[in-house]
Computed example of a mutant assay.
Amino acid sequence: MIRVMIVDDDALVRLGLEGDEEINVVVQAFDGLQAVELATTHHVDVALVDVRMPRMDGITAIAHLRALPHPPKVIALTTFDLDEYVYNALAAGADGFLLKDTDPVEILRAVHLVATGSAMLHPAAARRLIDRYHRSGPPQAVDARARLDRLTPRERDVLTLVARGDTNADIAASLGMRESTVKAHVSRILTALDVTNRVQTALLARDAGLG
């Protein structure tokens, strides 16, 4: 059972999660401050967080949620796919983003994907978003390349596909590995690159000129 927190006042988001026997909406918050408070008293696997909220905005809330001792995976919600706040949410630790009018089937798929450690990004929109708002200067590029030097050649192969947005299953099929082996590689990559999730891994890879 995937325990979900919705951080949004839009009832349609909650409706999109109904009907899946493997998903349980355990708590709902109406702004970022309430979300952080509730996350400390409820076990949450995945949080769906609106980017624009009163009192504490979604970006700040995501950073606080990811800093918890047992942080939930986070999916940022937004109205526009080319919104600088979405990039900031990903940089704060979100594992992906969805548009608020996303088909309910895709919302369910996103929750399942991030719960297992994958990212959920709309590939074309994600590339445009990163290209528009993630402008790295020479210091960032040098640092990113130095971090990539910590990886083995096989880990670089895996990283290239992670940066492309592939799931663990996709990577396993592409590289002829078991999915459990891919998961182990991804875990080592996150540690070596000193990042917290696959989205930040992809951003760092782009900084280094990979992909």
Score class of each variant (00 low, 15 high):
40 T>G: 14
188 R>W: 00
12 L>M: 10
37 E>R: 06
138 P>C: 05
110 A>E: 11
151 L>I: 04
54 P>C: 06
40 T>L: 09
186 V>S: 07
183 K>M: 12
169 A>G: 13
26 V>S: 04
113 L>Y: 10
199 V>L: 06
161 L>F: 10
137 G>A: 03
131 D>C: 05
80 F>S: 01
76 A>I: 06
32 G>M: 07
116 T>D: 09
190 L>E: 10
167 T>W: 05
133 Y>W: 13
13 V>R: 02
116 T>F: 00
70 H>T: 10
168 N>L: 02
18 E>A: 06
113 L>H: 09
148 L>Q: 05
139 P>I: 03
102 T>G: 10
177 M>P: 14
148 L>F: 04
175 L>T: 15
192 A>E: 13
173 A>C: 07
140 Q>A: 02
88 N>F: 03
141 A>P: 08
201 T>H: 00
130 I>D: 03
182 V>R: 00
87 Y>I: 11
137 G>M: 03
21 E>I: 00
46 V>I: 14
91 A>V: 14
151 L>R: 13
86 V>G: 13
187 S>Y: 10
5 M>Q: 05
87 Y>K: 05
136 S>V: 12
51 V>N: 13
120 M>A: 15
16 G>P: 02
104 P>A: 07
93 G>N: 08
71 P>T: 08
54 P>G: 11
80 F>T: 11
111 V>T: 04
116 T>C: 08
116 T>A: 07
172 A>T: 15
12 L>K: 01
59 I>W: 02
129 L>K: 08
85 Y>N: 10
138 P>D: 09
85 Y>A: 07
204 L>M: 01
155 E>K: 02
121 L>A: 13
129 L>I: 11
48 L>C: 15
15 L>C: 03
187 S>N: 14
129 L>T: 09
140 Q>N: 04
73 K>E: 05
187 S>T: 15
124 A>E: 15
146 A>C: 07
49 V>H: 01
92 A>M: 04
154 R>F: 07
25 V>D: 00
201 T>G: 01
166 D>C: 07
160 T>S: 12
208 A>H: 00
179 E>I: 09
150 R>Q: 13
